[in-house]
């Protein structure tokens, strides 16, 4: 079991608790022992970077310092936005000694441990898409997705800017597809899987955001997807919760279920519903939509009873 510091971020702590529950339940099955960070704050979500950039850098340095203090070499994230914000700060602190010294001194002045830039920030997606995590995932995903057609939706800030993220080709990513297939699902391909869900401007520019988020949902639907899976709780919120507004704005009722990555893998791993929590906490209940989709295209490739969605 590999010990990693675990940064939940705001959504998994609050409005997307199901992401935290399912991540905690899944982690031991894929070889991860999570050390939950107690004293951390929001990463700023890109907003503090834009409003008070120097404060953004210090807030993220503080999170990294507390992660380093656990003795773990990896800080595990479950959100694209947290991943970019933390990696960007880490990249700056690792590559600029003078900057690190100033920030580290400031941290110590307010009682935070110094940061020596030994931590690597990695998303859960990357941990289970390759290496030991992937081998364990294959072994644990024995209940399988039974041929469900799953549309991977990456979101932006786990792919771009690749200078900071750098795990995979941002134009031809493969990690979600590999995981879907390891879980016995069929990965659907569609162009908008690497595009924006609109979430960062959904409050300030809802119309523009809706014009963005319709693309993945519509394309996934047209390609015959039973559900969309995403590694980002902000993409999840936008694609799931704003579908009702999309219906009001366009008259199109997609009823496309949206899953967190940890839930999708959790289904295949046979986690209990109490650990996955989707019928309870998602705007669209999965069962009806999935069985409806299966009925409309005829018999499923295998009996679908194995996946109780």
């Amino acid at each position: 079991m590999r010990r990693v510091a675990y940064y939940k971020g705001c959504l998994a702590s609050l409005s997307a608790k199901e992401l935290d529950t399912s991540t905690q339940a899944l982690a031991p099955r894929v070889g991860l022992e999570l050390i939950e960070l107690e004293s951390v704050t929001c990463c700023g979500a890109g907003d503090i970077h834009e409003a008070e950039p120097d404060y953004y850098l210090h807030l993220n340095a503080r999170i990294l310092a507390y992660a380093e203090a656990t003795g773990a070499d990896t800080l595990l994230t479950v959100c694209n936005v947290c991943t970019l914000n933390l990696r960007q700060a880490n990249w700056q602190l690792k590559n600029d000694e003078a900057l690190r010294e100033r920030v580290s001194t400031n941290l110590q002045r307010v009682g935070v441990p110094p940061y020596n830039a030994t931590v690597e920030v990695r998303h859960l997606l990357w941990e289970i898409a390759e290496g030991e995590g992937y081998e364990l995932l294959k072994a644990t995903a024995h209940r399988g997705l039974k041929g469900l057609r799953i549309a991977p939706f990456y979101g932006c800030q786990i792919l771009r800017p690749s200078k900071i993220l750098g795990f995979e080709d941002p134009d031809r990513p493969w990690s979600l597809e590999r995981i879907i297939e390891a879980c016995g699902g069929e990965a659907i391909d569609y162009p908008a899987k690497v595009k924006c869900c609109g979430f960062p401007i959904i409050q300030a520019r809802e119309e523009t955001a809706l014009g963005e988020l319709i693309q993945p949902i519509e394309q996934a639907k047209d390609a015959g997807a039973d559900a969309i899976v995403t590694p980002c709780p902000l993409c999840h919120l936008s694609l799931d919760a704003w579908q009702s507004k999309l219906r009001a704005a366009t008259g199109k009722d997609f009823r496309m279920p949206i899953l967190h990555l940890s839930q999708l893998v959790g289904v295949a791993a046979g986690l209990e519903e109490s650990e996955l929590k989707f019928p309870l906490r998602h705007l669209l209940t999965i069962g009806g939509a999935v069985s409806g989709a299966a009925a409309s295209r005829g018999p499923a490739p295998e009996p679908s009873s194995g996946v109780e969605l």
């Binding site: 890109g46 771009r160 941002p170 963005e212």
Partner: peptide, 9 residues
């Protein structure tokens, strides 16, 4: 700006 970062890329 929706922060998709395509421009930087």
């Amino acid at each position: 700006c929706t922060r998709c970062y395509f421009c930087n890329e």
